[in-house]
Lab assay of single mutants.
Amino acid sequence: MALNTPQITPTKKITVRAIGEELPRGDYQRCPQCDMLFSLPEINSHQSAYCPRCQAKIRDGRDWSLTRLAAMAFTMLLLMPFAWGEPLLHIWLLGIRIDANVMQGIWQMTKQGDAITGSMVFFCVIGAPLILVTSIAYLWFGNRLGMNLRPVLLMLERLKEWVMLDIYLVGIGVASIKVQDYAHIQAGVGLFSFVALVILTTVTLSHLNVEELWERFYPQRPATRRDEKLRVCLGCHFTGYPDQRGRCPRCHIPLRLRRRHSLQKCWAALLASIVLLLPANLLPISIIYLNGGRQEDTILSGIMSLASSNIAVAGIVFIASILVPFTKVIVMFTLLLSIHFKCQQGLRTRILLLRMVTWIGRWSMLDLFVISLTMSLINRDQILAFTMGPAAFYFGAAVILTILAVEWLDSRLLWDAHESGNARFDD
């Protein structure tokens, strides 16, 4: 018995066209964080690309023209004298008006014999932002004059995390709450300039795509075929072959399989920071003279006294001054041990922890910024005066060393310790 099946006739004509040209192939790229070699397709503007294995951002879609970056830099340069030299806060102490600005706080630190601690604050609040705007201006002028731009481009990517104007702005709020127990506070004209400078700096850093600047100024022929001998440069993120001198053909720094002496430098910085954190938390970090009496505060006791007036601000200072430094030390110690013992479990967790400490590390400088600003506000000789204690130097040095330890660690070593050939990683 035959089955009668109805015929289905399409209502619209289906047209099949042959592909007349070869589909576009992607360029081969190595991930600078996990060293995976993959094919990167062509990316349009405002599109980002991520590593298929570790999800690290390979290409950032946010990109401004150099002219727009230069305009932002010149605007920031105009704001800087007002943000640093004009009063941020006014207080009335014992019937006398006192003005506080950024430069005055750094000068008070240096004047009291601790120039190293003052230079830490100076670099993060004044030096690094000033280098940022002058570097962008150098790129703008240098591109037109045919100057060598490689050193500036190499420095810009590392400079971003040292620009800490946003953290200093939080420190202004913390210092205001600490001082309000002794005097009446009012915002100064410099505060508005400083807030504007923070906003412009944040926007500029978020749109400063150094890798795209490398592509514009020093374009290189990408690798179009897969080759395990391809290496990625950690300076400019170019994937290719080393030249005859073993250097990256684009930025001219040595092109090595792994960062040289990464573990040794990381261990040295980490152990030194552990040693410095002990006096930083045991010795007094601030000293207040009130009517001839002397009151010393460690980091913890200062947080407890701050909690009596504002528990939320005390929580912020606790996280930045105690929780973050010790968390960074514990995480980095764990990561280094996992590399030495070739741990194969929990790779995803370790990668996330490394990215976390990379982002939060700079916030530990908050305590030094609060001390710097408070020193310029309260300084009335023996009637009422505020000065920093010996722990300030140890704390600042420990924070900087932990930042350097994270920067010096080559994250690809975590993958080397893991089993080879993993296309995915999980716990």
Rank of each mutant, 00 (worst) to 15 (best):
S119C: 06
S411E: 11
I383M: 07
E86M: 03
P284M: 08
I91Q: 04
A269T: 08
V275C: 11
V102K: 01
A312D: 08
I288Q: 00
M103C: 05
K342N: 10
I116K: 14
C124N: 10
G346A: 15
R62E: 05
A314H: 04
Q47M: 04
L276A: 14
N422K: 11
F326E: 06
L336F: 08
A307L: 11
Q29G: 06
A128E: 01
L257V: 12
F395Q: 01
L130G: 15
L130D: 02
R216S: 13
A391N: 02
V210E: 12
F122P: 00
Y289C: 03
G113L: 14
G389R: 02
W415N: 08
N379V: 03
D381Q: 06
W214L: 15
A312N: 15
A187Y: 12
V189A: 11
I371V: 04
M76A: 03
E212Y: 15
S262V: 06
R97Q: 03
F217G: 15
A196T: 15
G346P: 14
S135V: 02
H418Q: 09
R247W: 14
L276S: 14
L159D: 03
T349W: 12
V203A: 15
L373Y: 04
D243N: 09
I185Q: 06
A71Q: 03
I43R: 10
L139M: 05
L336N: 09
A18S: 07
I106T: 04
K265D: 10
F194K: 04
S420D: 08
F192L: 14
S193H: 02
F318P: 00
L69K: 04
L197K: 03
C248F: 00
F192V: 10
N310H: 02
I167T: 03
T5Y: 05
H418R: 11
L23Y: 10
T67I: 13
M375F: 03
R362M: 03
I199W: 15
I360W: 11
T15V: 09
Y138H: 04
V133H: 03
I96Q: 04
V121I: 11
L159Y: 01
M147V: 04
F326I: 09
G20C: 07
L79K: 00
S286W: 00
I311H: 14
L205S: 15
T110C: 13
V399G: 12
T11A: 07
C34S: 00
L255I: 08
L354V: 14
L257I: 13
L413T: 10
A71W: 10
H207Q: 10
G246T: 13
W415V: 07
K178N: 14
G346R: 14
I131V: 11
F395N: 01
G127F: 01
W84F: 11
A272Q: 02
L197W: 08
T387N: 04
T67K: 10
R30A: 07
Y168C: 09
N148G: 11
H252L: 06
L145D: 01
V331E: 03
W267Q: 14
A73C: 08
I371S: 00
G118Q: 09
R258Q: 06
A272D: 01
D243E: 13
Q47H: 04
V203T: 14
H46I: 03
R362T: 03
P325T: 04
L77M: 08
V174Y: 00
T334N: 13
L205T: 14
A223E: 14
R17Y: 07
L3F: 06
Y289N: 02
L282Y: 11
A56Y: 07
S273A: 14
P222I: 14
E21D: 08
R62K: 04
R424D: 09
H340C: 10
D181W: 01
F318T: 06
I288R: 00
H207N: 14
G85W: 03
A18D: 07
W408K: 03
G105Q: 14
T11F: 06
R62W: 07
W140A: 14
N101E: 02
I330S: 09
T15I: 07
G315D: 01
W408A: 04
L40W: 06
R245C: 12
T67A: 09
G61E: 07
L413I: 08
S135D: 05
T75N: 13
T134H: 12
L139G: 04
R245A: 10
S372N: 08
A398N: 11
G389Y: 00
L352N: 11
A405H: 03
I285P: 01
R256Q: 04
V331I: 11
I136R: 02
A385W: 01
L336S: 11
I383F: 11
L373P: 02
N44K: 14
T202N: 15
I287F: 03
I287A: 05
P6S: 05
L37A: 08
S286D: 00
D416C: 11
D60I: 06
R68Q: 04
L230D: 14
F425D: 11
G85V: 05
G235W: 03
L337E: 08
L165T: 13
A223F: 14
E212G: 15
I126W: 07
W214E: 05
Q108K: 14
A280H: 02
M80D: 06
L139W: 04
L335K: 06
F425C: 11
L213I: 10
G142D: 01
